[in-house]
Design a protein around this nucleic acid. Sequence first.
DNA 1: CTGAAAGCGCTTACAG
DNA 2: CTGAAAGCGCTTACAG
Lengths: 338, 338
Amino acid sequence: VVTLADVARLSATSRSTASRALKNDPRISDETADRVRLVAKALGYRPNVAARTLATGRSGIFGLIVPSTLMDDVFGAQVVSAVTSAAGEHDGGVMLWLSHDRPSRAIRETVSNGLIDGLVVSILVQNEPWIDELLDSGLPCVLIGRHSSRTDTSYAAIDNITATRALMEHVRDQGYERVATIRGPIGNTDAEERHSVFVEAMGGADQIDANLVEVGDHFSYEGGYAAATALLRHRPDCIVAGNDPMAMGALAAVRAAGLRTPEDVGVAGWDDVRAANRPDVRLTTVHHNMEAVGREAVEILLKLIGGAQGPIRKTVPASLVIRESTLRSRGDEKEAKA
Amino acid sequence: VVTLADVARLSATSRSTASRALKNDPRISDETADRVRLVAKALGYRPNVAARTLATGRSGIFGLIVPSTLMDDVFGAQVVSAVTSAAGEHDGGVMLWLSHDRPSRAIRETVSNGLIDGLVVSILVQNEPWIDELLDSGLPCVLIGRHSSRTDTSYAAIDNITATRALMEHVRDQGYERVATIRGPIGNTDAEERHSVFVEAMGGADQIDANLVEVGDHFSYEGGYAAATALLRHRPDCIVAGNDPMAMGALAAVRAAGLRTPEDVGVAGWDDVRAANRPDVRLTTVHHNMEAVGREAVEILLKLIGGAQGPIRKTVPASLVIRESTLRSRGDEKEAKA
DNA sequence: CTGAAAGCGCTTACAG
DNA sequence: CTGAAAGCGCTTACAG
């Protein structure tokens, strides 16, 4: 491999000068700089990242921690993809860890291996204990998705609240009256936030018929199917699910019960996965932009690395997508309600 | 941060000795070694990876390159997840790159940044040009999935051939006679291999009715739906798809055409995604083990890094999963055929 | 505008 | 069994 010393020699300068020339230090004369750059290019010089990291204490590499179970899902792929491309746009590399069974070991190694400028971490559930170790390590750290129990964490997240409010309003406008929900797992931040808006829209916890609330297992289609089957015994006219797979499970359960969507039971989801728009599905849902969340996360991290005082928080809007699964198209009823 | 020098000082030895003690060099006396390890632990010493990499030329980090489009799919997540956990089992870290629009720049940076011991690369299509640059760079390199035009590449891959043969045999056993296929994209190794077995099972290219072969766009549900719709005009009694999403699209197309599965048209897929086992789907398919492929890839890479002469190749078996979508359950007919 | 020198934190012949 | 020294490839005050 070719090193800086090689470049310096062939361009008849010192390593110091060569180093400066290659990072466009204005103190270097144009002739010298050009010469160095030419030689570097000709030799195919690539700076050794390990050496540079050791010298500067900065690697340009971010760590990314994702729960391994998330990777069974499109969601995990989206997070990984979003953070990786955003980092790439800033010429940053990404090291990936899956927080498996035994996260703490891997994590401890991560934090102070001297190779990582900062960390983006995705959590499934609020208050996972190993998180604190990271947050308190002094390493710049941003959560993707949230972690509500601490007020000192930086994060980038989808704005669940606003979009879910719009969704609930739409449900109301369509004249649905017995609205049930299949919420996501307890403790999952997205699930909690979306559910809190459901509760709010229904007039508060004490106004809610407990029979119309089910928890969907693991945010999954199967969980949605089972939950919907239970809910249908109480004759809801609409089911609002915490994500699309559960909503699609609900659709199947409705069909299996001999009922029709949206005439008998409306169904709504969250996430706008690809399948939500299939001709035989046409699910009303909320579309979000994970790429944007990844970008925000990386930008926050960069600021923290640059010395900014945290916490820095950013929320990315999501938008209601209305499709046939909730459209009873009785514009008149809407008026009547109002 | 605490460095080796700190550990050495507090345990009253030299950095050399401390370094050796921590890597269990047998030359160090037990007392000294124990003392060093105790101090290291007490201080929470973590070796600086950049420094060690610079000194030894080995980082324990692998690069992983995945086409960004793959990440829209469960498949991409599986590859990432499999390689990352396998690397973790060998105490290896993984740096991830998405081979986006402009792979070559990122790739060139990767190859000789001195931070990576080797590379696992996932390709979509045979003969992507930028691959050669990598393979010829001297960096140990293993493909996950294959790349057929070169004979000097190492890879770990799913055994498409054997399992697809079993699938075609099953289709025959069920008495299907006008068997159509929705194959995956041209040039995609998995698609080509699976299709080649289809052709073989149908008695060779010249025996095949071109009307019974369609290419499914992007391996997608929508592509499968469109392809199946076209195929149904030629009255196949079975559709073998190159993956599950396309097969599920085909199922929907069959239903939309007012036909039933498996009575009128059998449908089979590949991959055994989660949805393939839904009660309303029950798709005959092929189950593979991406985790195992990832493990093989990492093991091959480790051998190459250790100096083994390539190419090293390994193929992981996949297994036929028979479900209702192809089960006409006419055991008698099967006999009649035989 | 340029260069000699020290240093980043580790490893590893080499000598004892 | 242990240590002093050189070196991995870069950066960056410091001096000129």
